[in-house]
């Protein structure tokens, strides 16, 4: 696991200060979507090898949600973005 995360607000911090809150690439289905779509959204997760987008919360620091792009194979961290900024950029 990536052991150092560069928080955009707090700087370089050890991973112990963060809590991983799951996949950040999921898109919430429409309220009227089928049960299958909701089931997939709530329960079904991939276990990718390579680059992933994840929500990390900096609980031991600024307590903001961050979107961390990291590689599950090489442990490399490619980018860390504030969750609100990420949502704005992606029009969520």
């Amino acid at each position: 696991m990536a052991s150092l995360i560069t928080c955009p607000h707090c700087g370089v911090r050890p991973k112990e200060e963060f809590a991983i809150r799951g996949d950040a690439s999921l898109v919430r289905p429409a309220p009227t979507a089928s049960d299958e779509a909701w089931h997939d959204y709530v329960y079904v997760r991939a276990n990718p090898r390579g680059r992933t987008l994840e929500h990390w919360q900096h609980v031991g620091g600024c307590r903001r949600f961050l979107v961390v792009e990291r590689d599950t194979f090489t442990h490399e961290v490619h980018s860390v973005t504030d969750g609100a900024a990420f949502a704005r950029e992606n029009g969520k």
Binding site: C10, E16, E17, G60
Partner: peptide, 24 residues
Amino acid sequence: IGLDLDPNVFATGASANALCGHIA
């Protein structure tokens, strides 16, 4: 505390939230 406390990085007057052991 997992913070760089070198005066060039964390100067007098600087402040931050951090974990000390497991305590915020």
